[in-house]
């Protein structure tokens, strides 16, 4: 049975109250708390070690699978390996994410290693949310690793969001794209207090006509620190775009490390980066519409991270 705290974390992660049908696996405090496979999506626990193999049948139409993780016991540390095998021409939405509620004094840590093997022409939408809560002094730590292999003509859209609550995160995402494959990433980060968030993307555009568009938006507050490391290598005629756009507040720090590597004369790569405080004129505009300065800041940040 899931506790109320676990249920509310699940709701925040997935937008759902309950899981009954469709493909899903719920992991709570290191144990499976419910699993269901369907005709087109099969979920199997790994024979060795923690984790799952998730098979999405070729030609699957507009289906989805949820694999949320919740941790409410203080002091738990786990590493989980999930492999997604997406069959040719399948079209699937995968909703992952981890919620840690730590009321204790020991650190809780979830390190999820997700590998995607995306076959020809398949389309994947991957949504990952990270949330942290609880008032214990123990830290909430998340170190996700995402590795993506994209075959010809496949596409993947990733939405990653980590809004406050996670004390320490070191996210690493790598992708290899074959001919005509397309990767779109939308990352949203907000750090506060003494939180630290590191996010690294290494994307290799290996096949002709492959493309990647990676946009990371961040807000850092308090004494927090963010490092955004966006790298694209163009190894064939391809198009790559990275953008990192940050609002810095209070005594926080942000380091943006863009890198573009062109190994082909027809690789077209663009990087944009901007870091700055909230523009004074934006605050003034919203104040002339009746918001207080604090309300105006909140609206601007929420819009920016929406």
């Amino acid at each position: 049975m899931l506790s109320d705290v676990q249920k509310s974390l699940l709701k925040e992660l997935t937008g759902r109250d309950s899981f009954a049908d469709g493909a899903f696996n719920i992991r709570a405090n290191g144990q499976s708390a419910g699993r269901n496979s369907t005709d087109s999506i099969r979920i199997e626990p790994k024979k060795e070690g923690a984790g799952l193999d998730i098979y999405i049948a070729p030609g699957t139409r507009r289906d989805h699978v949820h694999i949320p993780v919740v941790m409410t016991d203080s002091g738990l540390k786990e590493t989980v390996f999930n492999d997604f095998h997406v069959g040719e021409g399948a079209d699937v939405e995968i909703v992952a994410g981890c919620g840690i509620h730590n009321c204790g004094c020991d650190d809780s840590e979830h390190d999820g290693i997700h590998r995607f093997f995306i076959a020809k022409g398949a389309r994947v939408k991957y949504v990952e949310k990270h949330i942290g809560g609880g008032d214990g002094v123990g830290k909430r730590i998340l170190n996700p690793v995402t590795e993506v292999e994209m075959a010809e003509g496949s596409s993947m859209e990733m939405e990653m969001a980590q809004i406050k609550g996670v004390d320490d995160t070191d996210r690493k995402t790598t992708a290899h794209l074959a001919a005509g494959a397309r990767l779109v990433v939308r990352e949203r980060l907000m750090t506060d207090g003494t939180q630290r968030a590191l996010s690294t993307y290494v994307v290799s555009l290996d096949g002709p006509g492959s493309s990647a568009d990676i946009v990371s938006r961040g807000v850092s507050r308090g004494k927090s620190f963010q490092r955004l490391d966006l790298r694209i290598a163009g190894n064939a005629p391809c198009k790559g775009h990275t953008e990192c756009d940050s609002i810095i507040m209070d005594d926080s720090r942000i380091l943006a490390v863009p890198a573009l590597e062109a190994n082909d004369v027809d690789a077209s790569l663009v990087h944009e980066a901007a870091i700055g405080r909230i523009a004074g004129e934006q605050l003034i505009k919203l104040m002339t519409l009746g918001l207080t300065q604090a309300e105006a800041e909140e609206r601007i940040i929420n819009g920016f991270l929406a």
Binding site: T288, G290, F304
Partner: peptide, 27 residues
């Protein structure tokens, strides 16, 4: 303050309007 005047009944359309990333016209 600016906010108090806005609430008291002053509206002001700027000569040079401000752009916002992420805020929609409806917002």
């Amino acid at each position: 303050s600016i906010t108090e005047r806005a609430k008291a009944g002053i509206g002001f359309a700027f000569q040079q309007p401000v752009r916002f990333k992420g805020l929609k016209v409806i917002d």
